[in-house]
Amino acid sequence: MWLNNVVAGLTPGATYAIVGVLLTLMSQLTRVVNFAQVAVGMFGGYISLTLVTKMHLPIFVGVIGGILVAALLSALLGWIIATWLAEASTSARSAVTVAALLFLISLAFILFGYRNQPFPTLVAGPMFTLPGGAVVSKVTVLVIGLAIVITVGSWAFLKFTAFGVKLRAVSDRQMAAELLGINVKMLNVSVWSITGAIAGLTVALVGPTASNDYVTVSTLVIPGAAAALVGAFKRMDLALVGGLAIGAIQGLFSGFPNLLIVRDWVPIIFIILFLLWNQRKEVWDVAR
């Protein structure tokens, strides 16, 4: 019974993990806490919905179209920030993404209407059953797999490719990198577009499994941020584990009807715990 609930929490958990990893990458490589990280994916999701239902295109064409739009939107936002806020503080750069988040939600209401339609389903059905009888769906396996692939893939890309080495150099010292002739803006915009595309893909996969209204999907960035905080916005592996843990704990709570209300607070509790933990360290440092 409880295992069933934990397993049910793994799909949202893996989604938080992916968002957490994306937020970690963005913060490390482009100096921004991207509050619009999922909103671009949400927008892409509704574009694919429109392509499939209104224009009667095949699902996979619609999904690819949606992913492209998410990547383009993200790239545009990144370009704006890299052009006009190149040397601004992280908080100023992040504030722009809050504006983008609100803008994308209202634009979605205007373009796609007030009545939400379900997303087209990409994958459905069970993958296997655990000994205790808990059913693991295909989507769960896919999303967890995607989270792991993104984490390991990003790590390997940053470590082993010339492009990745340049990204790390920019992350260390942007000015020194520019003085070496590295195209910081182009690198930044590529990171934005790739994380935007991944957000689009993630929404396409998990969108059909849950409530997919504009606000609910876009604010997945909050549990995602809680996951990123587990890795202090620095470590993708911890963000991955953090996201899965938050999802599993939420799943566990949903098994107890009187604890249901606590469930939505789990990410917030994670965030508060992290802040307290950080505070404690700072106080300790000062005391020293």
Binding site: V165, R168, A169, R173, M175, A176, A177, L180, I182
Partner: peptide, 23 residues
Amino acid sequence: LAHVQQGRMIFPSLTVKENLQLT
């Protein structure tokens, strides 16, 4: 133009080889 700035302008998270490979 190459500008070696004041202070030690290594990229700390890169290895020596990676630092050199940038140029």
